[in-house]
Amino acid sequence: MEKKTFGLQVMSTNGIFYNDRASEIILPCIDGEYAILAEHEELVLAIYDGKMTIRDAIGDKIIAIVGRGSCQVANNRVIVLVDTCEKPEDIDRHRAQRALERAEEEMRQNKSIREYYTAQAAMARALSRLKNSSDYGID
C-alpha cells in the first residue's frame, strides 16, 4: 500500500528549506505540537519557536529548529513560512549562547515595552536553538 502524501513547502527568510512531497509534518504551536497528515482539513496555524519534524514521502525523518511563523493547509498542500529554519547540526551553539546573554541583558534594562518584547522573543529563539541542538549532541 502506497503511503499518502501531500505537497509541502517550508520557507524562511534564508530561502526554501523543503519543497517536496511529505507524509507528515509536526509543528511547534503555542499549546504543544500539531501534526498534519495527507488530506488534512483546511486551517491556518501560528508556529512558535521549537522543533519541526518532517517525514518525507518514503518515511525518512527531517528535523529542523524553526522560529515563529505560520502554516496554511489547503487542497492537500501545506505552506510553512517561518522567520528562521535550520537543521540542529547547523546551529552554532556559541553564537546562540551569546544571543541569549544579549537578550537577557536587554530584558534587565528598563526600556520600552516594545524593546522588552523584542528581547523576550530573541531570548525564546536562543533558548530553543540551544535546547534543540543539545538534544542531538551538538557542541
Rank of each mutant, 00 (worst) to 15 (best):
E115G: 01
K131C: 00
I113S: 05
A126I: 10
M107Y: 12
E101P: 10
S112T: 13
E106Q: 15
I79Q: 08
V78I: 06
A103V: 12
L81G: 08
T118V: 06
N132R: 05
L127C: 10
R125I: 02
N132E: 11
E104Y: 10
R108F: 02
R129L: 14
A103M: 13
K87V: 10
N76G: 02
E89K: 13
Q109N: 06
A126K: 14
Q120A: 07
I91A: 00
A124G: 15
R114L: 04
N76R: 08
L100Q: 13
S112A: 02
D92A: 14
A96D: 04
R125Q: 11
P88K: 02
R93W: 10
N110A: 00
V73Y: 01
R125Y: 03
Y116D: 08
P88C: 01
Q109Y: 03
A103F: 14
D92I: 02
Y116P: 04
V82W: 09
R129N: 02
R114S: 07
I79N: 14
D83G: 03
Q109F: 07
R125M: 11
M123P: 00
A99F: 04
I91Y: 01
T118H: 06
M123F: 10
K131Q: 06
Y117A: 05
S112Q: 09
S112L: 11
V78K: 05
A99M: 09
A122N: 10
N132D: 02
A126M: 10
E89I: 04
Y116R: 14
K87Q: 10
R77H: 15
Y117P: 03
R77M: 08
L127Q: 15
M107E: 09
I91H: 02
R95A: 06
R125A: 10
E101C: 04
E105Q: 12
D90V: 02
H94T: 11
I113R: 13
R125D: 05
